[in-house]
Computed example of a mutant assay.
Amino acid sequence: MHIDIISVVPGLLEGPFSHSILKRAEEKGLATVRVYNLRDFAIGKQKQVDDYAFGGGAGMVMMVEPIAKCIENLQSQRDYDEIIYMTPDGETFDQPMANSLSLQKNLLILCGHYKGVDERIRERYITKEISIGDFVLSGGELAAAVVADAVIRLIPGVLNDETSALTDSFQDHLLAPPVYTRPAEWQGMNVPEVLLSGHEAKINEWRFEASVRRTRERRPDLWAKSGLGESDLKKRKK
């Protein structure tokens, strides 16, 4: 997978892609992330990338020309499966979307900033708009890093245990069950006996029931999406 990111503050993205899983993914040749400074495509000696909004109002707007120039330059180098704009009014990012994007080969992500981008950019180039939640950040850089991390870790071979990503929270609209490690007893608190039994079927059943219980208690909205009902739970126990 190849991900290109366009930003006016590329320094914000240096850390996330220089460590841990994302770094290992690049070292293994499984994913490449490149960040492009929009000011390299800016107008005039001042490297201007923003201007006042027509009609007035507070805040600046990212100009159409630098963004168009940057996107078209990158498009001349590769074909993108999606050109994504990170924006608060985009579709809410979730695990199914991450799964879908992980199947693509080339992604281009435009990070919003200031009051956003000239609407003509969205109409001409953008194929998908994504939000990571109902809140506002200073820019789209951190949101782009979130999307890249969630997508890249799903690529086969990125994680040491390839089954790990398939058992994460949200993969089946259920939260992950509680997890424990050594010691088995700590300050009077014990690990559930079933997890020490070595009985795989019973352990899997306990984990499923714990996932269901946690999801129903903490995220009833996810539970509703799971499509599971009492009859399904009873069938599983049989």
Rank of each mutant, 00 (worst) to 15 (best):
2 H>G: 10
4 D>N: 13
11 G>T: 06
11 G>W: 06
12 L>E: 13
12 L>P: 07
14 E>C: 00
17 F>H: 07
18 S>F: 12
19 H>F: 04
22 L>Q: 11
23 K>A: 01
26 E>K: 10
29 G>A: 05
33 V>P: 11
35 V>E: 04
36 Y>Q: 05
37 N>V: 03
37 N>Q: 06
37 N>M: 12
38 L>M: 07
40 D>N: 09
41 F>P: 12
43 I>Q: 13
46 Q>N: 03
48 Q>L: 12
50 D>V: 00
52 Y>I: 09
53 A>K: 02
54 F>L: 08
58 A>I: 07
59 G>N: 10
60 M>Q: 08
62 M>C: 15
62 M>T: 04
63 M>C: 03
64 V>T: 04
64 V>W: 12
64 V>L: 13
66 P>W: 01
66 P>D: 05
66 P>H: 03
67 I>A: 02
67 I>Y: 03
69 K>D: 04
69 K>Q: 04
70 C>H: 10
73 N>Q: 14
73 N>I: 02
74 L>D: 02
75 Q>E: 06
76 S>R: 11
81 D>I: 04
82 E>G: 05
83 I>W: 07
84 I>L: 02
87 T>K: 14
88 P>I: 05
88 P>E: 01
90 G>N: 08
90 G>E: 12
95 Q>D: 03
98 A>P: 01
98 A>R: 00
101 L>C: 06
102 S>R: 05
102 S>W: 13
103 L>I: 01
107 L>I: 10
108 L>W: 05
109 I>N: 01
110 L>K: 15
110 L>P: 04
111 C>T: 08
113 H>C: 12
117 V>T: 01
118 D>M: 01
118 D>R: 01
120 R>W: 06
121 I>E: 04
124 R>T: 08
125 Y>F: 15
128 K>H: 11
131 S>P: 06
131 S>Y: 14
132 I>W: 08
135 F>K: 09
135 F>D: 05
137 L>C: 11
140 G>L: 12
142 L>I: 03
143 A>Y: 00
146 V>N: 14
147 V>M: 05
149 D>V: 07
151 V>P: 04
154 L>K: 07
156 P>W: 01
160 N>K: 15
161 D>N: 13
163 T>A: 15
166 L>N: 14
169 S>C: 08
170 F>A: 02
170 F>V: 00
179 V>D: 09
179 V>W: 13
180 Y>R: 02
181 T>A: 08
182 R>L: 09
182 R>N: 03
184 A>I: 13
186 W>R: 07
193 E>N: 05
198 G>K: 09
200 E>M: 14
200 E>R: 14
202 K>D: 02
202 K>I: 06
207 R>F: 02
207 R>I: 13
208 F>S: 12
212 V>P: 06
213 R>Y: 15
214 R>E: 00
214 R>Q: 02
214 R>C: 04
216 R>A: 07
217 E>F: 12
221 D>C: 08
221 D>P: 15
224 A>V: 11
228 L>S: 10
229 G>P: 14
230 E>V: 14
231 S>P: 07
234 K>G: 05
238 K>V: 08
238 K>S: 06
